[in-house]
Design a binder for these strands. Sequence first.
DNA 1: TTGTACGCGTTATCAA
DNA 2: TTGATAACGCGTACAA
Lengths: 343, 343
Amino acid sequence: MANNKKTTIHDIAQKLNVTASTVSRALNENPRISENTRKAVLKAAKELNYEPNQIASALRSGRTQLIGMLVPNINRAFFSSIIRGVEEVANSLDYRVIVSQSSEIFENEESAVKAFLNVRVDGIIASIGKNTENFDHYKQVLDRGLPLVLFDRTTADLQTSQVVIDDYQGGYLATSHLIAQGCTRIAHFTMERKIDIYKERYRGYTNALLDHNIKPDENLLFSGNLQLEDGREHTLALLQKNQEFDAIFSASDYAAMGAMQVLKEKGLKIPDDVALVGFLNEPFTSFTDPPLTSVNQFPIEMGHTAANLFFDALHAGKKKVVPKKTVLQPELIVRASSLKEKH
Amino acid sequence: MANNKKTTIHDIAQKLNVTASTVSRALNENPRISENTRKAVLKAAKELNYEPNQIASALRSGRTQLIGMLVPNINRAFFSSIIRGVEEVANSLDYRVIVSQSSEIFENEESAVKAFLNVRVDGIIASIGKNTENFDHYKQVLDRGLPLVLFDRTTADLQTSQVVIDDYQGGYLATSHLIAQGCTRIAHFTMERKIDIYKERYRGYTNALLDHNIKPDENLLFSGNLQLEDGREHTLALLQKNQEFDAIFSASDYAAMGAMQVLKEKGLKIPDDVALVGFLNEPFTSFTDPPLTSVNQFPIEMGHTAANLFFDALHAGKKKVVPKKTVLQPELIVRASSLKEKH
DNA sequence: TTGTACGCGTTATCAA
DNA sequence: TTGATAACGCGTACAA
């Protein structure tokens, strides 16, 4: 069946007694072509089962229709959903997405960007690694005039478009909700990093307290890696220090999960004794017992936005547009872990 | 800083007063070159900040170092872990992975494969969509002599390498474990599809019963889409029909989760009244209450294996090797949902 | 061991 | 509107 030799525009040209350039024009919606030859070319192309060679096209035109996408971890629901969002937009415009993951390792991040540049991607969409403090590899991308869009984990050191969610608002929403449920002694689990997102969530938490005339208490603040184990430790510490508390707002669902485990082990009722709110809206949050209230970051929409910003920059081309920063509003998904009976 | 013009092998050649072909050979570990010039070229390349243009190389050599990877859903833990596994191997060999998702829609699957061929990937690693019954697009890949590796969702209609887990063994392990816990009335949730995997799990279930002299009972068998809602319905049906049962083996964690919810709502104790085993080992299984026993499919290892099979086929080149089928052994992860007190 | 010459398939720039 | 020609950057027979 399948021809061993792939047909090229020359084959089509030969068949129609025209030149390859005419065929190329016909295939690329070039206006400098008559409607008749255009139709003839399209017909012949179909007959000969022509498939364009994008590599040759890329070499000549300098455009590969490839987007390099860099994420810390592909098998985290948040990131894979963002990839999905980017893909949806990209594929609809006939672009392909190349994915690499840094695994939060700086060297991987550097080499992935370099690899992207070597395959001559048309641009890069990336989320910065936790421990990255040097951005030269990203600057190289910008120096080459390629679009670079950052999402979620961004930095002010790079003058480029970015999309984040309003982490402050997320922290504020979560905390206000707990206060509305009657909680006044609200602990917070956070992480100390250069990354802004945790600071913002913490700021939202603090301001929500202040706005409701509750004085933030340092004894209720815990910093760690926000993994399940950290949540367990923080909660045990809370209990051991005999701190009075009636709620926990964790900047990550995993640490919230650790808290839930410990609270249940100690016989405390959720949410009546301690109300619980996480952050990320990981898939598992609806499967815990009780289901965990959390902050949804709309990852698919974030992917859509990142892709749109990318194509904006791409189409702007040389004439450097002002980088745009899009801030998405998060949503508090209220579940049983924080919803007290009407009081 | 960054040169606007990217340096090519010609620039290096000029600087060293040699020809581009010499530079090319030096850069490609071609043996037909003296050690001296090789070193000189490498030095000059570094000085001029040379980065190879993989597009030009691909056009000339016919190899893009790109692997097209097709999955039903990128944001399912099982699949994103497999992607991760493939990436690890591929990147270490300087290959990049292009990911597309079919979303279980046949047309997407077709167009993704076509897009892969257009960018001239060196081969494809894919998992077949649920509803796919026509494999012509995959046959085209094979006709072109490109490596094609199928994972998890495979078909006997295609003569190509594949990697699956031993679903039969998974079903057998799960069921035997429940029997060892003293269960004799074990319900099974399955799905009716052309895909083999569910049939195999069911076969494992049946044979485990028979091997322990338990007669399979059709009244304990439920077929659906294996989503949470299906699990709920099946369990309610079990209870309403007043069927005697002391365990449920669900071919999916989601349906098992639905069962867990209903059982708890009805005041039944897990595992004492009803023991519960799922399949997939989704991340959430360790966060449920009680944690859910499940069958681990080692997705990352599956990705490694798929990549290795891919490179086997790639290196075999034209001399069509016999397609290999690798069967990975699953592992039962025993958690509290099925672990009864010693009896 | 190195150079010469050409081609991979397409697109861009002329000129007609 | 179409054709002729060159070029994108690299790899590889073949010759030297």
